[in-house]
């Protein structure tokens, strides 16, 4: 049925209970402010617990200072909240081990993550810190996909991994560079532990 042919019903708007949506205010570490709906916040276990603990009213939300998120910058937080708003109301995946996890990256997420690697790295950190399960899944899957079909040699280039030889050389260099006195202290500490002394105090 087209929109034109749909039956018209008079609605008494006053009789419909209006759900009052609450928008929380958050501030990034570079002082960018964001307004995020209550439902979108539920995607983040960390933020959800935080706002529940704060018990803000609608007035509090407007009158009190924005909730500071100290270790995430505005550019990253913008992506995070865009993702949360888009996926608000969706079920949060529960890892009960009963079914194999299969995650496809939806088109919206793919576009959102069409960003430079530095920002993708920050997004993964933010998703982990804010405990947004599905955002962590898709962002990590994007990094995993970069490895798909690559040989070990190609993988070393993709992830800038050292070879075993380089690894060994770096370990040796680190040991040589270590302050001899610090090494003595460490060895002394290890010796005391072996002999049963639990600390230097």
């Amino acid at each position: 049925m087209s929109v034109e042919n749909a039956p018209v019903v008079d609605v008494d708007e006053a009789a419909i209970p209006v759900e009052k949506k609450m928008y929380y205010r958050f501030e990034s570490n570079d002082k960018k402010e964001f307004r995020v709906s209550e439902l979108a916040i539920q995607q983040s276990e960390t933020l959800n617990r935080l706002v529940e603990a704060m018990g803000y009213t609608s007035e509090d939300v407007e009158n009190k200072p924005a909730i500071a998120i100290e270790n995430i910058d505005g550019k990253t937080l913008k992506l995070v909240f865009q993702w949360c708003e888009h996926h608000k109301g969706e079920a949060i995946p529960v890892d009960d081990g009963s079914v194999p996890k299969i995650v496809e990256i939806p088109e919206f997420d793919a576009k959102l993550m069409d960003i430079d690697n530095g920002l993708l790295f920050k997004l993964i950190w933010a998703a982990d810190y804010l405990n947004i399960v599905q955002l962590l899944n898709v962002s990590c899957k994007k990094v995993a996909n970069m490895a798909q079909g690559k040989t070990p040699a190609q993988l070393r280039r993709v992830y800038l991994l050292p070879s075993d030889e380089e690894d060994e050389a770096a370990k040796r260099a680190a040991q040589e560079a270590q302050d001899p006195r610090a090494r003595e202290v460490e060895e002394e500490f290890e010796e005391r532990k072996r002999q049963g002394g639990n600390s230097f105090f």
Binding site: L120, I124, W125, D128, M146, Y159
Partner: peptide
Amino acid sequence: MFEFWNSLPEELK
């Protein structure tokens, strides 16, 4: 290329 792999902590890797 994802040059930040080595900066990820083990749990995120």
